[in-house]
């Protein structure tokens, strides 16, 4: 925590990364630029998901919460005429508020029961979208969602410009999430995960902290949903179904959830594999199969995720012997 050298390294790394990200769209084709937009949005989604997992609870409703942000932002702008930047914030807030409400039933459960409970809650929300044609548009969902307004001569219809917009929003969000984790909040979230009774005994209101983690995670998931909705212009219940949740799980688990960057590595690596390699090879149909195999393999052989490779590489480069496998954080919960 107090290690200032690590902090400096992190900053240097982050700035280099940012520079690379700024140049990136200039090097890509049009369709790859679109993929880059979605990738940035997904980074926010999976990093916000990780915040939730810090408390030890694995939700299966995170993508639905993203959908809440998307639907809410779309409805605020489309039906009520709220300006899009404001509606995005309101959408994210709606997602956060949904989490506050859901906390009351869901945090009576833990571990496996929470997993199932969050799944059920998510499915109920999806059924509500499906059932109520007004205002949610039923199974077809909403379309013609207003896009982000032009700023001067900058049109956000162009993926490159939208990419930069997302980059700004997501960078700020990640910074906030990072600060939260490095603060006492992060310590308390971890404490809830490993020993909630002990945390309680020194005065931690476990419900409130679980709710805080869930609400923050949901706010940013909702924001990612809003960014998505106003770019693609249409949302429907199927877009936020459990299949999509599975992808978030895969990103998080393949990357590893022990560190902040783990899930980012996961989503970037798998997006490159998925949208660059597989698409180029024409393997679109067998994509889920490869994902499935990767998922099984990573649970079996790489319980700490891709992130565990970096410390190993570092040790190798420094010429030290690799230590025996350390504790697996990603796999053993709940």
């Amino acid at each position: 925590m107090s290690d200032s050298k690590t902090t400096i390294t992190v900053w240097i790394f982050a700035l280099t990364l940012l520079a690379g990200l700024l140049v990136l769209p200039q090097l890509l084709s049009y369709s790859q630029r679109e993929i880059a937009v979605f990738l940035i949005i997904n980074v926010l989604l999976v990093v916000s998901y990780r915040l939730m997992t810090l408390t030890g609870e694995w939700s299966l409703g995170h993508v639905v919460i993203m959908g809440v942000g998307a639907y809410a932002s779309a409805l605020f702008s489309k039906r009520l005429g709220v300006p899009v930047p404001l509606s995005m914030f309101l959408g994210a807030s709606t997602a956060g508020l949904t989490a506050v409400v859901l906390s009351f039933p869901l945090f009576r459960m833990k571990g496996f029961y929470f997993l199932i409970g969050s799944f059920a809650a998510g499915e109920v929300i999806r059924l509500i979208w499906k059932y109520f044609t007004f205002p949610f548009g039923g199974a077809k969902g909403l379309n013609l969602i207003p896009s982000f307004p032009d700023i001067g001569w900058i049109s956000f219809f162009d993926p490159v410009n939208y990419y930069y917009l997302c980059l700004i929003v997501v960078s700020v969000s990640l910074f906030i999430l990072y600060r939260v984790e490095r603060s006492r909040f992060g310590l308390t979230f971890h404490a809830l995960h490993w020993q909630d009774k002990l945390a309680e005994s020194v005065g931690v209101n476990t419900f409130r902290y679980r709710m805080l983690a869930f609400t923050l995670a949901s706010f940013f998931a909702g924001l990612s949903g809003a960014l998505y909705a106003h770019y693609i212009g249409t949302v429907n219940p199927t877009r936020f179904d459990v299949e999509e949740m599975v992808y978030v799980l895969i990103w998080a688990i393949v990357g590893g959830t022990a560190t902040f960057y783990g899930p980012i590595v996961g989503v970037v690596a798998l997006t490159i594999v998925n949208d660059v390699l597989l698409r180029a090879l024409g393997f679109d149909t067998i994509r889920p199969m490869i994902y499935g195999a990767v998922l099984i393999a990573s649970v079996l052989f790489m319980p700490d995720g891709l992130e565990s490779i970096f410390p190993k590489l570092k040790r190798l480069m420094m010429g030290r012997k690799t230590e025996p496998a350390t504790k697996s954080e990603a796999g053993e919960i709940p």
Partner: peptide, 22 residues
């Protein structure tokens, strides 16, 4: 291999689900 690891088992079965679907 994942006997004492309920979440791992669940995740692996999700992987298998994707394979069967494909």
């Amino acid at each position: 291999a994942l006997r004492d690891n309920p979440l791992g088992g669940l995740i692996a079965s999700i992987g298998f689900l994707l394979i069967l679907q494909t």
